[in-house]
């Protein structure tokens, strides 16, 4: 990260609460493929996707992670590794690591997934989201050489498992978020990605219109309320 950015970043952080939850704007004409071009030639996403139906993909990854969590299932781990490790390597290389470092770090992230699978909560994160947070923390560890304070842990949801509909809901919404991001104009998408590679510190994300972030935020808020409620009822019993 350039030094000038690092020293001036604090100023960029000073926005007011009024900027919270900007109203989603309707997509502009330019953002939408026109009817004619859509039938002939769809705009291609950045990566080629496997041909499995989109809706089920995130739920599949979450289910595999739960098999690791509950049964220490090595085959489930291998499947997750094949999908995510090459993406982690790409993510880390674009965050400034060379190919060797990035691969080593991707290995560490996947080992951490195995060790910490008990902490995975499908009501609050998709497998990709959870892996992103592990990779981000490793990057801070390695490149910035500093500790990363994390929020206080929350207790687990009411036993045995929170309701399936809300779990699936979050997984689907995370996929819709990825789809919405891919549908953004290239320049805007690049800015968002760069923010997550650690390159930028400004408000590109808030400026990105048309991302269903509010939906996810509301669902997460409900999940947290359920946890708090579970905690209170348990304390009273």
């Amino acid at each position: 990260m350039p030094k000038a950015l690092r020293t001036s970043f604090m100023y960029s952080l000073l926005t007011t609460d009024a900027q919270r939850d900007p109203p989603p704007l309707a997509p502009t004409r330019r953002d939408r493929p026109s009817r004619t071009s859509a039938t002939k030639e769809r705009p291609k996403p950045v990566t080629s996707r496997p041909s499995t139906p989109r809706e089920s993909e995130a739920a599949t990854w979450a289910a595999l992670l739960i098999r690791i969590r509950d049964d220490r299932d090595e085959a489930a781990f291998a499947t997750l590794f094949r999908h995510f490790a090459p993406r982690l390597k790409g993510f880390l290389m674009r965050s400034g690591a060379d190919a060797t470092e990035a691969e080593e770090c991707a290995q560490e992230v996947m080992t951490t997934l195995w060790v910490k699978a008990a902490q995975f909560d499908p009501a609050r994160a998709s497998a990709a989201t959870w892996l992103f947070t592990i990779a981000r923390n490793k990057r801070i560890d390695r490149i910035r050489r500093q500790r990363r304070p994390e929020p206080e842990d929350l207790p687990w949801g009411p036993e045995p498992d929170p309701d399936q509909a809300s779990l699936l809901g979050l997984q689907q919404e995370t996929e819709q978020l990825a789809a919405a991001m891919n549908a953004l104009p290239e320049k805007q998408r690049d800015l968002i990605q760069k923010a997550y590679f650690g390159d930028m510190t400004h408000s590109e994300i808030a400026d990105a219109t048309g991302l269903p972030l509010g939906t996810i935020k509301s669902r997460l808020r409900l999940a947290l309320d359920r946890l708090r409620h579970a905690m209170t009822t348990r304390d009273q019993s």
């Binding site: 995510f84 993406r87 982690l88 993510f91 994160a125 998709s126 497998a127 990709a128 989201t129 959870w130 892996l131 992103f132 947070t133 990779a135 981000r136 919404e173 995370t174 978020l177 990825a178 991001m181 968002i192 990605q193 997550y196 994300i205 991302l211 972030l213 996810i216 997460l220």
Partner: peptide
Amino acid sequence: EALGGAVL
């Protein structure tokens, strides 16, 4: 963080 997951 969910958006970070989408980026990944």
